[in-house]
């Protein structure tokens, strides 16, 4: 039985396409007078956030509420690695409250995996971003957004640019887009690509300019200025010059190519304001689509006696 969504690798192509087609139906809800569906009435969804992420939390909250679920927000910021309340104790508390699903954001890679597989809780677990590991619903909303603009993703060229090493968005997208038949190119300075990436199902490049003209979608990843102090690149200025998307580079894109960003953006660092606000930018739409995709995931996991999609066990 499939119970959890922990990694984009948990989704077969059929699973992923089911989520996307379900999200398409969910998205039409936005046009209706009553933006609510009864599917999860009586179910309790807990948003368990050990890291600040207002956007993701609100997106899951809106998704659960539009499906008529009861939502409990549990912000446990700071206690992830300290010796305060442990992940396990928090999980046991939520279990006692009768959670049917736990949407978890955690600073430690694998924390949702632990939550799902340690026998602490019986709930369905949805990974809302864990450390530098994965963020599968972000990848689903990105794929959904691409599909709306580009149609089926088979053979489409997707270029993902930036801090791949620390990016859970890049990991989940690389896996999911490959599953959906797209050709993914990861572009970053060598210091920001993980060891062993040559075995991922992607192309890699150090040269943004050569990757852009063939792209059907360009996804810019956030680059934290703190990385500069880790010596991953010399200066923010040099990073922007080599890996930032500005108006000049945007001009080399094909007419239909869209520009994406998972947010929050560092304008002037990886993306200039004129690109972020251009007609190609689908960044705001990504946010809208996030709610529909998360509704689809919650519905398919919780809407029946057992889930229609998901991972192991």
């Amino acid at each position: 039985m499939k119970r959890h969504l922990l990694s984009a690798a948990d989704l077969s192509r059929d699973d992923a396409e089911l989520v996307l087609s379900t999200a398409e139906e969910m998205r039409s809800l936005a046009d209706r007078p009553i933006k609510k569906l009864p599917a999860l009435r009586g179910r309790t969804v807990v948003n368990l956030f050990f890291e600040d992420s207002t956007r993701t939390r609100i997106s899951f909250e809106a998704a659960a509420k539009r499906l008529s679920a009861d939502v409990i927000n549990f912000a446990a910021k700071g206690s992830s690695l300290s010796k305060g309340e442990s992940l396990k104790d928090t999980a046991l508390t939520l279990e006692a409250m009768g959670a049917d699903a736990v949407v978890v954001r955690h600073g430690a890679s694998g924390a949702p995996h632990r939550l799902a597989h340690s026998g602490w809780v019986r709930s369905n677990v949805v990974n809302a971003g864990d450390g530098t590991h994965e963020h599968p619903t972000q990848a689903l909303l990105d794929a959904f957004t691409m599909t709306r603009h580009l149609g089926a993703l088979d053979g489409r060229r997707i270029v993902i640019v930036g801090d791949v090493l620390h990016s859970r968005v890049a990991r989940s997208n690389a896996l999911l887009l490959h599953t959906l038949g797209a050709e993914v190119t990861l572009v970053a300075p060598p210091t920001l690509l993980p060891v062993g990436i040559e075995n991922w199902p992607v192309e890699t490049s150090y040269d943004l300019d050569s990757a852009l003209p063939k792209a059907d979608a360009v996804m810019m990843l956030r680059v934290q200025r703190e990385r500069m102090h880790g010596g991953f690149f010399p200066t923010a200025r040099e990073y922007s010059r080599r890996y930032g998307l500005d108006g000049r580079r945007m001009a080399s894109l094909q007419d239909h190519t869209i520009v994406m960003h998972p947010g929050p953006m560092v304008r002037g660092m990886e993306i200039t304001a004129d690109v972020a606000d251009s007609d190609r930018s689908v960044i705001v739409e990504q946010v809208t689509n996030g709610v529909a995709v998360r509704m689809a995931v919650l519905y398919l996991l919780l809407g029946g006696s057992e889930p229609a999609v998901g991972g192991e066990e």
């Binding site: 890679s109 864990d130 530098t132 590991h133 994965e134 090493l165 990991r171 060891v195 062993g196 075995n199």
Partner: peptide, 18 residues
């Protein structure tokens, strides 16, 4: 560092121990 640095550490998002 959390685990041996290699393809798996990159995939699991665990800081590598070269």
């Amino acid at each position: 560092a959390q685990m041996n640095e290699g393809e798996l550490s990159g995939r699991l998002g665990l800081a590598g121990w070269p």
